[in-house]
Amino acid sequence: MNDVQWQALRDFKADFKSRISAWQRQIERAGLLEELQSLQKKAAVRDAVPPYSLDTPLVYNSALDDIQKTDDIRIILIGDNPGKDEQLACNRRYLVGQSGKIADGFFRKNPELNIDFRKNVLILNKTPLHTAKTKELALIIKEGNPLFAEIIRESQVWFARATVRLHRALYDADDTGNPCKLWLIGYAELRERGLFSVYRDTLNSAYAECPAQSVSAPLERKSGCASQVFVYQHFSMNRFLIDLKERSDSSLSLAENIEQVGLAHRKDILGR
């Protein structure tokens, strides 16, 4: 990363940590931490999730602190929310469970993409509030204190806006000729009335506010960072790989097929 990109990432991390602390304080000051943890456990039991240690109700991705200025961020990847492995005290990192292993394996098996999943991919979520399975957020919203629903909504808005700012900064300051892409992974809950429809709408609005490149920019860069947004099925249950295989065109390279699939889903989910 160059100086501009590095500073943008540092600013993002500082704000992210501050937001996590603020939401945590809100819950604790309201005396609701025990209720939140109880609901998280209840939701997991309802879905027959094997017992696990509940360590971190709201998760900051500590892997961001391992990123060095010398690293090249090629993809910002957006998952859903931290699962049972991600929230463990020994991890506190996003996409380190089975889905993350599948993603890591995909890039390792396809070196022509020139992507190291743990070095070139910056992983974020749509909300930092933990549940063993994403759908369990609905139980917390329905049965929990209204503060939980507000934090889930507010965190989606913050994540969407802050992520677009970061993507734009990395994109606009690129001097490698290979600007950063943004991958939205898992789109079922991005649809109308889905758990993450707020994130979708906020993301779309934030990208609409991003101006295109100047008239002096190369033709392929004139459409701005919004052109580098792609939507995919989740890595969980191998859905990303199955979808890619079913939609692949044998006349295209792997990278071209990945882009075409991501654009098709973007049009369907984001409407552009």
Rank of each mutant, 00 (worst) to 15 (best):
272 R>T: 11
253 S>Q: 10
173 A>G: 10
156 Q>M: 07
144 G>W: 10
25 R>G: 02
48 A>D: 12
136 E>R: 12
79 G>I: 09
64 L>K: 02
205 S>E: 15
228 Q>W: 07
206 A>M: 01
155 S>N: 08
77 L>G: 03
115 I>F: 02
6 W>T: 13
50 P>T: 10
248 S>H: 03
43 A>D: 12
83 G>N: 08
50 P>K: 09
92 R>A: 01
39 L>W: 04
7 Q>A: 09
268 D>K: 14
48 A>N: 15
184 L>M: 14
117 F>T: 05
150 E>A: 15
180 C>G: 02
246 E>K: 10
231 V>G: 10
205 S>T: 05
187 Y>G: 01
208 A>Q: 15
124 L>F: 08
201 D>A: 10
93 R>L: 07
120 N>I: 01
48 A>G: 09
270 L>V: 05
201 D>I: 01
224 G>N: 09
104 D>R: 15
76 I>M: 04
199 Y>A: 00
114 N>A: 13
193 R>L: 03
207 Y>F: 13
129 L>V: 15
13 K>D: 13
110 N>D: 05
124 L>K: 11
13 K>S: 07
210 C>E: 13
146 P>K: 04
175 D>N: 12
117 F>R: 08
170 L>Y: 08
35 E>R: 14
30 A>W: 00
251 S>R: 12
232 Y>Q: 06
179 P>T: 00
134 T>Q: 13
227 S>D: 13
262 G>V: 05
141 I>M: 07
170 L>Q: 08
52 Y>T: 01
254 L>K: 07
183 W>G: 02
102 I>A: 12
160 A>N: 04
163 T>G: 02
175 D>K: 06
51 P>D: 07
271 G>C: 04
116 D>Q: 11
147 L>T: 08
171 Y>H: 12
106 F>K: 11
249 D>M: 01
238 N>V: 00
118 R>F: 08
157 V>Y: 01
8 A>C: 05
63 A>D: 13
237 M>F: 11
63 A>I: 03
88 L>Y: 00
88 L>Q: 12
256 E>P: 10
1 M>R: 09
244 L>P: 05
12 F>P: 02
127 T>S: 14
68 Q>L: 14
84 K>P: 01
16 F>V: 05
264 A>F: 03
100 G>V: 05
68 Q>F: 06
87 Q>S: 03
56 T>N: 06
89 A>W: 01
257 N>R: 09
101 K>P: 00
171 Y>C: 06
229 V>S: 01
222 K>S: 11
57 P>R: 01
265 H>N: 12
262 G>C: 08
12 F>H: 12
141 I>C: 14
131 T>H: 05
181 K>M: 13
60 Y>I: 06
249 D>S: 04
88 L>R: 06
164 V>M: 03
75 I>A: 03
257 N>K: 00
207 Y>K: 00
106 F>W: 12
62 S>M: 02
134 T>I: 13
47 D>H: 11
22 A>Y: 10
16 F>A: 12
238 N>T: 03
153 R>M: 08
199 Y>H: 05
138 A>Y: 05
105 G>V: 01
71 D>H: 13
234 H>Q: 09
29 R>C: 03
69 K>G: 13
148 F>P: 06
114 N>T: 11
103 A>N: 12
264 A>G: 03
109 K>E: 14
133 K>Q: 15
168 R>H: 15
78 I>V: 15
135 K>Q: 15
42 K>G: 00
149 A>C: 11
29 R>V: 05
221 R>A: 10
